[in-house]
Design a protein around this nucleic acid. Structure first.
Lengths: 185, 185
DNA sequence: CTAAGTTTTAGTAACAGGTACTAAATTGAA
DNA sequence: TTCAATTTAGTACCTGTTACTAAAACTTAG
């Protein structure tokens, strides 16, 4: 069973290598492991690892939406209702990519990002900035749950807007936060 | 020169389309613009737009490191010091991708993510969860500034950890937050 | 040692989504 | 009508694969 061990070992390292660097071609892998290209392909097949182009595409797609939802787009979650200067509602469908691998619990900053972003969306101004936020996470959110965020402007003082945001998962509150947004010209 | 106008117009829209959705094949583009595949290819050539696979690869490569710091990795920012159960320091170099396009001000949730993540890093346990956070943004952070986050465990009560996090940009405090982290097994 | 099984290697056809090139057809305007 | 710009057609070739067949090499039990 010495050979079989070698195979298993190689496949373990292959998994590692590709998760470190998904941009490696089969040919490059043959050089790393000093086996034929067929062996690499058999290994990938057995491990269910897709081909280079698929892997690259996955990386691209994953963070294309991530960038768009965490960095690129102006709003995190889908805006379903908006009364500028008054209130707004957004929905965010969570998935495993937003969660800790081990526990499947959604990372706090995703929830925060949705809250912050709906708070800013309701402000009737070009750009706003989070000034102060007093927030509270009430229950952990699991991947797959649908976050419904409601934002309400409660007070306006000069260029300062006070906005309350509540996020629920099926009627149950999971987050509340008070934002003070400052309009900048 | 009506035809030339049509060509230019098509090329403009092509650029737009592809920046919106870089995952479109030439074939899909022929259907959108109702021209032959050769025309699409000539257009791409004239505009210097690379082929699908190159575009996908670019998206993947550009954001690969970003994903690892915003979604994939367990910690946002670079850990420069860590005393498990006591304190930790992380550094986050901000860039334009983390900022609002118009103002160049870093989005709040990036700062929050760094704070949350260093707070969790100092906990000497496998998994922790943000329970409550009382946070305050003091000054806006501009793209390019280096965020230095210091976390300190101030109290431990059962499975609850009270952690204070302060983030500075060159000696000036830009954020402070108190986290209550709950260890889960 | 030998037969049987496992693992590895070789080789082929086909595929997607192209590039690069040549050449012909279409269109618009002078 | 004629000339140039534009569009279309068609071919050979490329990369990194899948899917498949088949043979070689190694392992191990009997």
């Amino acid at each position: 069973m010495a050979k079989r061990f070698k195979k298993k070992e190689r496949q373990e390292k292959l998994k590692e290598k590709l998760s470190e660097d998904p941009f490696l071609t089969d040919e490059e892998l043959t050089e790393i492991f000093d086996v034929s290209i067929q062996t690499i392909r058999l290994d990938r097949l057995e491990l269910g690892i897709p081909e280079l182009r698929e892997r690259v595409k996955n990386v691209a797609e994953n963070n294309y939406s991530k960038v768009r939802s965490l960095g690129g787009k102006e709003i995190v979650g889908e805006l379903v209702d908006l009364q500028l200067g008054k209130s707004g509602i957004s929905i965010l469908e969570t998935d495993k990519n937003m969660a800790f691998e081990k526990t499947n619990v959604i990372r706090g900053h995703h929830i925060f990002a949705q809250a912050e972003s709906i708070a800013m969306a309701v402000i009737d101004a070009d750009v706003a900035l989070t000034g102060v936020a007093n927030i509270k996470y009430k229950t952990p959110v699991k991947a797959g749950e649908k976050l419904i965020a409601k934002a309400e402007v409660v007070r306006i003082r000069g260029n300062k807007y006070f906005v309350h945001v509540f996020i629920n998962v099926s009627q149950k509150q999971v987050f509340r936060g008070k934002f003070i947004l400052v309009v900048i010209e």
